[in-house]
Amino acid sequence: MLNTEPNIAAPDDFYEALLALHQDLSPEQGRQVDARLILLLCNHIGDPAVLRQAMARAREGIVPAGHDATLAARA
């Protein structure tokens, strides 16, 4: 079960560190750091049910405005 109750002892310290992690990075570099961070944390959590809940919550309320680069195939 995904824990959405407070779980971080010093929230302001954590948030500052999260922003410091991205300091002076270009958008591409920021995305690179985020991707690594997400992978590290997901592996640490491990529980697939928790990961799916977190993914669903993260996507909530976002209407897709882009599209993946695939094409329909018919033969």
Binding site: A69, T70, L71, A72, A73, R74, A75
Partner: peptide, 9 residues
Amino acid sequence: LESKGRTFR
């Protein structure tokens, strides 16, 4: 009849 799916770019 058809075979359907995705083509990768």
